[in-house]
Computed example of a mutant assay.
Amino acid sequence: MNKTLPTVQVLSLADQVACELREDIIGGRLLPGMALIEAELTSRYNASRNTVREALHQLGREGLTSYVRNKGVMVRRIGLAEVRDLFLVRRTLEIQAILGSKPLREYQSDSMLGAIEAAELARDREDWQAFGTHSLRFHQHIVGLLRSPLLDAFFTNIAAQMRLVFAVAPDEENFQRPWLERDCEIHDLLAAGRRHEAAEAMTRYLDDSEHALLDLLSHPARG
Rank of each mutant, 00 (worst) to 15 (best):
K3Q: 10
L5Q: 13
P6A: 07
V10K: 14
S12M: 05
E20P: 01
L21Q: 11
R22H: 01
D24M: 14
G27H: 11
L31P: 04
G33R: 01
A35G: 04
A35C: 05
E40C: 01
L41C: 07
S43V: 10
S43H: 11
N46H: 12
T51S: 11
R53C: 06
Q58V: 01
E62C: 05
G63N: 13
L64Y: 12
T65E: 03
T65L: 08
Y67C: 14
V73C: 11
V75W: 02
V75M: 07
R77N: 12
L86D: 02
L86G: 01
L88V: 12
R91F: 15
T92Q: 11
T92N: 03
A97S: 04
P103Q: 12
L104F: 10
D110A: 15
D110K: 14
S111L: 15
M112R: 01
L113W: 09
A115R: 01
I116G: 02
A119K: 10
E120T: 12
A122R: 03
D127V: 02
T133N: 06
S135D: 08
F138N: 00
Q140L: 06
H141S: 05
H141I: 00
S148H: 06
F155L: 10
N157T: 15
F166K: 06
A167L: 02
A167S: 11
A169K: 14
E172G: 01
N174E: 11
R177Q: 15
W179G: 00
E185K: 15
I186P: 05
A191W: 00
G193K: 11
A201T: 03
M202L: 13
T203S: 15
Y205F: 15
E210T: 03
E210N: 03
L217F: 13
G223S: 05
